[in-house]
């Protein structure tokens, strides 16, 4: 059952108009919920899960941005790349070069995608 519209209502596409007070009330309530998560709930959960606590400690100690989305956003990628690149370079290992086997794998990857392009359903 929908209530009668008043001039104080807020219109949101795809939703019933709602009163301005209720709309702002909801916004404040959810905002407080976020604040509560950051200051009370989140830390409480961390204390309850020992592994989570350990991971958090490591994140803090090593200054890892666990929210990073791409490899250039974290130092560990750069450190890891340098470490592995130099390790392999000094050992002179032949399996980490642009050789026939390596290129075959790149070609195999492209073939897999081409097969997908050819045989995936249109519908």
């Amino acid at each position: 059952m929908s209530r009668d519209r008043t001039s104080r209502d807020i219109e949101i596409p795809g939703k019933e108009p709602r009163s301005r007070v209720r709309a702002w009330g909801l916004l404040i309530f959810f905002s407080m919920l976020i604040v509560a998560f950051g200051s009370v709930i989140g830390p409480w959960i961390q204390n309850k899960i020992p592994t989570m606590q350990q991971i958090v400690q490591i994140i803090e100690e090593r200054d890892i941005d666990s929210a990073a989305y791409f490899y250039t956003e974290i130092e560990a990628s750069d450190d890891g790349e340098q470490y592995i690149r130099e390790s392999i370079r000094f050992s002179g290992h032949k399996d980490a070069k642009l050789n026939f086997t390596f290129l075959s794998v790149v070609v195999l990857s492209i073939i897999i995608l081409l097969l997908g392009y050819r045989f995936l359903p249109n519908d």
Partner: peptide, 16 residues
């Protein structure tokens, strides 16, 4: 190329 054929197989064959 960084981690050689092993790395690219895990990342570029499994993923697609």
């Amino acid at each position: 190329i960084v981690i050689g054929t092993a790395g690219i197989f895990v990342a570029w064959v499994v993923t697609p």
